[in-house]
Measured scan of single mutants.
Amino acid sequence: SSRTRFTDYQLRVLQDFFDTNAYPKDDEIEQLSTVLNLPTRVIVVWFQNARQKARK
Rank of each mutant, 00 (worst) to 15 (best):
Y9E: 14
V42K: 06
A22W: 07
A54Y: 05
N21E: 07
V44G: 10
T40P: 05
A50G: 08
T7Y: 02
S33M: 04
R51T: 02
F6E: 04
R55P: 09
R41F: 07
S33Y: 01
T34K: 13
Y23G: 07
F6Q: 02
A22Y: 04
N49A: 03
T20F: 02
Q10Y: 01
S1T: 12
T4R: 02
K56A: 03
L11P: 00
I29G: 00
V13W: 03
L38W: 01
T4C: 03
D27I: 08
N49H: 10
Y23Q: 07
F17I: 08
F47P: 00
R41W: 04
A50Q: 09
P39L: 00
Y23R: 13
F6D: 09
R41E: 07
T7H: 02
N37S: 09
R55D: 11
F18N: 03
A22Q: 12
D16Q: 13
P24I: 05
T7D: 10
P24S: 00
I29W: 04
T40A: 10
D16S: 13
Y23C: 06
A22C: 13
S33L: 00
V13Y: 14
T34H: 13
I43K: 00
F18Y: 14
R55Y: 15
R41I: 09
Q31V: 06
N49S: 12
L38H: 04
N49W: 04
T20D: 06
E28Y: 04
F18R: 06
Q52C: 03
F47V: 05
A54N: 14
Y9L: 13
A54L: 10
N21W: 02
D19Y: 07
K56E: 02
E30A: 14
L36I: 08
K25L: 06
R51Y: 07
F18T: 03
D27R: 11
L38S: 05
L38V: 11
P24V: 02
Y23V: 11
D27V: 03
D16V: 05
R5V: 14
T34Y: 10
Q15H: 07
V13M: 15
R55N: 14
Q48C: 11
V13R: 14
W46R: 04
E28I: 01
A50D: 02
F17L: 09
E30L: 10
W46L: 01
F47H: 02
V42M: 05
F6L: 08
R41L: 10
K53C: 14
D27S: 12
S1A: 14
R41M: 10
A22M: 14
Q15M: 13
F6C: 09
Y9T: 15
L14I: 07
V35W: 06
N49C: 05
L14H: 00
L11M: 10
N49M: 07
Y9P: 10
E30Q: 15
T7R: 02
R51P: 00
D26K: 14
T4N: 13
F47M: 04
E30N: 07
Y23W: 10
D8A: 09
D27C: 11
V35A: 11
V45C: 10
F6T: 05
K25G: 10
N37Q: 08
L38R: 03
I29H: 02
Y23E: 15
F6A: 02
D19R: 08
R55E: 08
D19G: 11
S33T: 12
V44L: 13
R3W: 15
D8R: 04
A50Y: 08
F47Q: 01
S33C: 04
L14D: 01
I43V: 09
Q48S: 07
F18W: 11
L36W: 01
V13G: 13
V35H: 12
R5Q: 06
E30P: 03
Y23A: 09
F47T: 00
S1C: 14
Q15N: 08
Q52Y: 05
L32F: 06
L38I: 10
R5M: 15
F17G: 06
T34I: 05
D27Q: 14
L32E: 01
I43D: 00
I43F: 03
T20W: 08
F6V: 08
A22L: 06
R12C: 01
F18K: 07
Y9W: 13
Q52H: 12
I43Y: 00
D26E: 07
D19S: 08
Y23K: 14
Q48A: 12
R41D: 15
D8W: 02
V44M: 08
K25P: 06
I29N: 01
N21F: 03
Q31D: 13
R12F: 01
F17K: 09
V42L: 08
Q48P: 00
K53W: 07
A54D: 10
Q31T: 05
L32R: 01
T34Q: 08
N37H: 05
F47E: 00
L38C: 12
R12E: 07
P39K: 06
T34F: 14
Y23P: 04
D26V: 11
V42F: 03
Q48W: 05
V44H: 11
L32D: 02
Q10D: 03
R51V: 11
T34N: 07
T20L: 06
A22R: 12
V35I: 06
Q52M: 04
K56L: 04
L36V: 13
V42G: 10
F6Y: 08
V45F: 04
R5P: 12
S2D: 15
V35E: 08
T20G: 11
L32T: 00
Q10G: 01
Q31G: 09
Q15V: 09
E30K: 08
N49F: 12
I29C: 11
L14K: 00
R55W: 05
V42Y: 07
Y23F: 09
S1F: 14
F17H: 14
V45H: 05
K53H: 14
S33W: 00
L38G: 00
A54T: 09
N37W: 02
S2F: 06
D26F: 09
A54K: 06
R5C: 15
D27H: 13
V35Y: 02
R51W: 07
Q10C: 03
S2M: 14
L32S: 00
P24F: 01
F18V: 08
